[in-house]
Amino acid sequence: MTIDEIKNVILEIIQDIDDEADLTNLDPSEALRDQLDLDSMDFLDIVMELRKRYQIQIPEADYPQLATLDSCVNYLMPRLEAA
C-alpha cells in the first residue's frame, strides 16, 4: 500500500466512526485526537477495524503510535506489507 492509500484507509475508518467528522483540513503531523475530538474508545475502534480488514494485531503498548496520520503511516506501512 502507498502512503496515500494508508492515509485514506485511516480516514475512511474515522469517517465510519464519526460521520460528522470534518476530515478536509487535517494536519498529518498533528495529533488526530486534538483535531477531531477522538477519545480512547475511538482509537480502540480503529484498532479493531484494522484487525478485521487486514488481520494486523496492534498491542495496547503500540496505541500511541497511532496518534497522528503520519505516525499511523509509519507504523502501519511495514505491517501492511507483511500482512
Binding site: 474508545m41 480502540l44 475502534d45 484498532v47 479493531m48 484487525r51 478485521k52 488481520q55 494485531q57
Partner: peptide, 17 residues
C-alpha cells in the same frame, strides 16, 4: 457498555490470532 467494547476488542484479537 464501554467495558463491553473494550473486552470485545481483546476477544476479537484473541480469536483472530
Amino acid at each position: 457498555i464501554n467495558y463491553g467494547v473494550i473486552v470485545a476488542n481483546d476477544v476479537d484479537g484473541y480469536i483472530r490470532s
